[in-house]
């Protein structure tokens, strides 16, 4: 039963027992890895350039180039968030290689990330049209279409969340089936496809969709 993440332990809080799932544990591991990496990479700022700082600089310049092409002048505002998102998604999707359950194979993680994108889209939209124009855009072309407009704007984050979740969970379930049927040698090339190729591709697609939706918000 790999559809739901395993509960690792319960956290006692007053009278409640809060279940801590594998998703939460792996998410914290990814966060710790990213923070430790950033700490050591940022140590050499202003001094002689360290190796880690060079790695980060290459990553940042690649992000800057791609985002300048897709987002235009708004790119500089969003490079920190989108870069962090890409780093987090890459590590999360690749964590399947270490035998743990990727945090992105949980709908909670992907829905939260997609709703951050949703709020950024609304914020950009309000910034470009003003609050009144933003409210008015829901009643266009006719007030009768208000429910459809609301559903339309909510379908963006939901489809983004389901896309990432479905791809990663689908790969996880297929890998589990293969492991239970043919546990020797056969899963190795499949890891290349489901974990490395699909993981990197889906992280890239989530990030690019975020950038495109924010850039085209109106």
């Amino acid at each position: 039963m790999e559809f739901f993440p395993r509960v690792v332990f319960y956290l006692k809080f007053l009278d409640y027992k809060v279940p801590i799932t594998e998703t939460v544990v792996v998410t914290w591991c990814v966060m710790v890895i990213l923070m430790v990496f950033s700490y050591f990479a940022g140590k050499s700022v202003g001094k002689e350039e360290g190796t880690l700082q060079k790695v980060c600089a290459v990553f940042y310049e690649a992000m800057e180039e791609v985002l300048n092409e897709t987002m235009g002048e708004t790119a500089s505002t969003y490079i920190p968030y989108i870069g962090t998102l890409l780093a987090f998604l890459l590590l999360s999707n690749l964590s399947g290689l270490f035998g743990v359950r990727p945090p992105t194979a949980d709908l909670s993680t992907t829905l939260v990330l997609a709703f951050i994108t949703f709020f950024l889209i609304q914020k950009e939209s309000i910034g470009r049209k003003g609050l009144l124009g933003y409210i008015k855009s829901f009643f266009e072309p006719s007030p009768a279409l208000f429910p459809l407009n609301v559903i339309g704007s909510f379908s963006t984050p939901v489809s983004m969340a389901f896309r990432l979740f479905g791809n990663i969970l689908g790969g996880l379930i297929i890998m589990n089936l293969v492991y239970s049927a043919l546990p020797l040698f056969v899963p190795v090339p499949l890891h290349f496809y489901f974990d490395i190729f699909a993981g990197i591709l889906q992280a890239f697609i989530f990030v690019m969709l975020t950038a495109v939706f924010i850039a085209t918000a109106d």
Partner: peptide, 16 residues
């Protein structure tokens, strides 16, 4: 890749 990702939505809904 972006177009494929959007086109994939219906298949992902089926999978879910």
């Amino acid at each position: 890749l972006l177009g494929d990702a959007v086109a994939e939505t219906s298949a992902i809904y089926c999978l879910i």
